[in-house]
Every structure is written in C-alpha cells, then in structure tokens.
Design a protein around this nucleic acid. Sequence first.
DNA 1: CATGAATGTGGACACTCGTCTACTTTTTGT
DNA 2: ACAAAAAGTAGACGAGTGTCCACATTCATG
Lengths: 240, 240
Amino acid sequence: MADMTEDIVETTERGSVMGRGTGGRQKLIEAALELASTTRSLASLGLREVTRCAGLAPNAFYRHFRDFDDLGLAAVDMMSSGLRSGLRERRLSLVRARKGPIVSADGAIVPSGREAIRATVGLVLDYVTEHPTAYVVGIRELNGSSPRMRAAVRKLLDDFARDMVEDIQQMLDAPMTDAVSMQEIGRQIIQQMTFFSMEYLEQPQRRDEIREQAERFILRMFVGEMALQAMTPKKKAGRK
Amino acid sequence: MADMTEDIVETTERGSVMGRGTGGRQKLIEAALELASTTRSLASLGLREVTRCAGLAPNAFYRHFRDFDDLGLAAVDMMSSGLRSGLRERRLSLVRARKGPIVSADGAIVPSGREAIRATVGLVLDYVTEHPTAYVVGIRELNGSSPRMRAAVRKLLDDFARDMVEDIQQMLDAPMTDAVSMQEIGRQIIQQMTFFSMEYLEQPQRRDEIREQAERFILRMFVGEMALQAMTPKKKAGRK
DNA sequence: CATGAATGTGGACACTCGTCTACTTTTTGT
DNA sequence: ACAAAAAGTAGACGAGTGTCCACATTCATG
C-alpha cells in the first residue's frame, strides 16, 4: 500500500481541518484496511468504528462514500494499482535476466528455468510479507460476503495472472502451449498462490517448505501441460 | 448438511418448549449458517439477529455457546462430519468400479483413468451444488477473521485431501509417487477445488467449462508429478 | 416425590449503531 | 470580493446491541 505523506495542514480550534484536499478519504480507507487486516473483516466493521479510527466524525463517511461496498472497492482499487505494478517490476527484472525455456522439448526441466521459477516464487512471497495487509484483506474478501468485492478481487487476480503470463512468455524462446491454456494455467497458479501466501504469513516456521511446495506446484503445472500437449498433437500457437 | 427432523414437542403457553432435548442449539447453528451463507459472514452476525432467526430469546445463546467462535466451530464440526462421509461414499462407489493407473508407466494418460477423473470432478461439483451453504460458509471462513475458524476449516480440507488420496491409492495398481508427494498434491487439488466450487456456484452458465478446467488441472498435477518423478530417479515408495 | 440440571423466558441496562439536519471552515472559481 | 463546492463538525433520533438477573418449564435422577 503506497505510503502517503500528507502535507502539513493547520487545524482549527476544533482540532480538525476542513475544506478541499484534507485527506479524509484516504484516512478512512487506511483505517478500514488497518481494522480489516487484524481481527476483523470489512463486512464486520461499523461506520462509527472506522471513522473513529480515522480520527473523523461519523458523518464524514458520507462525504466520500455511499456505503461500505463503496469504501471497500476504493480500498481494493488503491491497493491494486500499487501492488500490481510493484510486483511486476520485480518479476520483470528477474525474467529479463534470462532467455530460454523452462521445460525443454523432450520434457526435461531446464536447470536455469527451474532456478527462475524458484526465484520468482521467492520474490512473490517476499513481496507478500512486505504487504501483509493488502494480501490478507484482499484474499479475505475474495470469498467474502460482498459480491462486488468478490468480483473486484477476482478481476485483480486475473490481472495478476495476465501480467505473469506475459512476463513468462517474454522469457521463453517459444510458447509452451496455446494462449488459452497458458491463461488458464496462469489463473490457477495465482489462485493457488493465495493459499501459499496465507500459509506463508500465518506459519513463518514453515516458510522454506512452503517455497519448495510452491515451486513444485508450478513445475507440475508446466511439465504437466507440456506432457498433455505432447499427447494431443495439434498446431502450436504462434508467438504472441 | 444433515437434515434433522426434530421430534414433535408440545409448546407451552409461551409458544416455546423448554427443558432437555428441545433442539435450541441446533436451531442456533442452522440460523447462523442460513444468515452467513447469503449476504453475510459469520463475523458480521449479531447475537440477537441469530437468536431471532432461530426463534429463541437472546439469552438462549448463552445456554449453549460462550461466544461466536464457539458457535462457528460447532457449525463447522456439524457440517464436516456429514459432508466428509457423504462425499467419500460417492467417490468410493466410483473408484471401486475400476482398478488401474491414471497415467501409464510411459507417461500416457489411460483413457479409463481420465474418465475416472472426469467422473470424480463431476460428482464433487454436483455435491457442491447440493450443499451450497456448507461450501460457501466453509470457504468464506477459510480466510475469515477468526483464527480458530480458519484452523478448523483448514483441518477439514486436510481431511478431505487425505480421504481423496486414500481412495485414489485404492484404485491404482501401484503408487504413482511417494506418500508425502501424494499428500501434497492431494492438498493442492482440494485447495484449488475451493476456487472451482465457488465459481461453479456463482457462474452456473460456465459449469461445463469449469468441469473441464478442473479435470485438466488434476491431470496436469498427476502427469506433472509422474514426469517429475521420472526425472528424479529414486526408489519408489512401497505399496501402502 | 423432591431435587437438580438443562434450557427456555421477560425485562432491564448502558451503550452503540446508522443516518439525518444544520452549521462551520477552507479552498476554488467567477 | 463573493459564491459555490468540498469536507469537516455537533447533536439528535429511533433502533438495535450484548449481557445480566430472576424466573419458568421440562426431564432425569435419587
């Protein structure tokens, strides 16, 4: 979540600032995320609880949001742009360092390909530990009670998957499989990574094991797909 | 969730029954699940709301539960015993009908093995549509705000995975891989099935596609594991 | 038959809730 | 300079909350 340093604003006798650009909206979003990432969920937060945590009066909520869904969607939107670009920058700096397949034509795992998977898993899980709030709240709302929140987080995961697939394609010499299968595998990897991420945050003593399991998972997906492709002869998709 | 037909009990002037065996505990659990499976989560339910839905006075809650975590854990416990045995019965009747591998020694998919995967996926997703409340609430609490609920649902998924692995081992002539890897794959399949299940419930128009994606996912996991095993020569685990 | 346990009840209590009205302060646009 | 917009405030309102006390009903046990 972007660290936002607010400009210094003098307060009135009342101890608050008013008028444009006072950052109340941002304070409400951050308060909700802070409360939702600890022992609460967004659905169980109260309006007065959030405004209290933000240091504003209850009615300030209605100056920025229509309802809690509105607040939640704003929170997801704020998190997603930062998370997505930050994660992608790191992965790109990694995959650009190497060019070649992960699985060779005869189905064997290329050592440097495996190393790239391992490094990618590492950077993703490191990223998770640096942004626990965003991940906890996001994954929690993925199956939460709000349909709009579920749809928003699902779309975010789809975006993550598309990014990842594009980055991997960039690293490969030739496509591993057709684009549709690649997108399907990308989504499934991202979905499964939500489980690894939550375990990684909640069970720090198992972190090495979780990294290895995530690496093996991704290898199984790629090796399995290559093998399935080999069993189903068809024209390979052109380079995108 | 087990359908419970209560014995006929005469009510007092007050319109309620009291004393032993009146089923108040059961009513509270069912009321909570009903509310939690629609537009709410367990964490956002109020005590009076649940007791009202159950048709009891607010204080009746304290006769059965200490707090909401207590209620939630009772609900998971009630769901899990029925879900687990019901699902397993169905799968066993399926896998007992055939004996043999899913992937042959040379890495090819055995047609009847693939058919078994397809049928198993089908029966699991049918089972999900028959028990939407249990799945929605269970998956929702998997990453919910209560650590005790998360641990309980996680354990339930682990149990599901162990059952599935044992059933598959029963169907296979010889073990596909070592027991530890098999358990890891089993857990990952069950975890991924939570995504397929939620999509299956929320996007009925995509059900055929979701079944196919789930089938391909499981095949990738097994074919990928066989291929990984073939690349890493080691003594195969003995039959369990 | 009496007693205790289980399990229900009504009512009270202090507190908190979401939402509204009316007002205040600050900034921006004309 | 003034008006409008943005964004804050206090206070009020009806409704609902969790929790407690004391009592009532039913069943099992000695």
